[in-house]
């Protein structure tokens, strides 16, 4: 148990046999803590992926399986994906709160965005027309567009990612300082809704 977060499921690594505790049972992809093998989880079965990623260690306020506090709530980081943008990178952390809700925390050199996945109402075609500064049909302003390339992952994830995968993304800012992120990948448009948070508001738990 990690400060209020319980292990919901355990599996054994098909490569080294070590036990892998999972804090969220709907995990689809996990990296073995011992041998760093990438493991797919499908219908209670485990399968080794062909390639495993090893991310260079970086200084971060957030650490895998170490809970942190934000606005009177605790969050447990379950996994992270690192994306590159040429000279730098940012990380998308998959979190769950103490009530089991899922979140994504994007960290880009001090810029923190906490978001939740919502039903998408945007079409794939929208990505062909969006430019920075443009106002969308639902009165959101386009503040950033770009392409992300996956450099690898650590921990557990609710979706499968492959090193080298790319997707287009767009940040849309709302009137109440809210942020909407659209991602266009091979499975279509995914929409995430959330807000900017200050790294100074992130607290240690326990």
């Amino acid at each position: 148990m990690t400060d209020g977060f319980t292990v919901e499921k355990s599996i054994n690594c098909p490569q080294c046999g070590d036990t892998l505790p999972l804090y969220f049972k709907h995990v689809k992809l996990v990296q073995c803590l011992s041998c760093k093998s990438t493991i797919f989880l499908e219908n209670e079965a485990t399968r080794l992926a062909g390639d495993s990623s090893v991310l260079a260690p970086e200084i971060s306020l957030i650490h895998l399986n170490v809970p942190f506090g934000y606005e009177h709530k605790s969050y447990l980081p379950l996994g992270k994906i690192r994306y590159s943008y040429g000279r730098g990178f940012w990380e998308e952390w998959w979190l769950k709160d103490s009530e089991g809700n899922e979140y994504w925390l994007s960290i880009d050199e001090g810029d923190f965005v906490l978001e939740q996945k919502v039903d998408s109402r945007y079409s794939r075609e929208l990505f062909n027309t969006l430019n920075v500064g443009q106002v969308t049909f639902d009165n959101l302003i386009v503040t950033e567009t770009g392409m992300a390339t996956c450099e690898g992952f650590e921990g557990a994830l609710p979706k499968t990612v492959t090193k080298g995968d790319t997707y287009l993304y767009t940040h849309l800012s709302g009137k109440d300082a809210s942020l909407t992120t659209l991602e266009l990948g091979k499975d279509g448009v995914e929409t995430y809704l959330g807000k900017w948070i200050s790294p100074f508001d992130i607290k240690k738990v326990g």
Binding site: E58, I59, S60, D108, G110, K195, W196, S198, P199, F200
Partner: peptide, 23 residues
Amino acid sequence: PTHGYAWLVYEDGKISLSMKVRD
């Protein structure tokens, strides 16, 4: 590396810390 970028403002001998806000 953890908190990104900020400004140390030096004006007339006074010092302040300035950070961009997104929200």
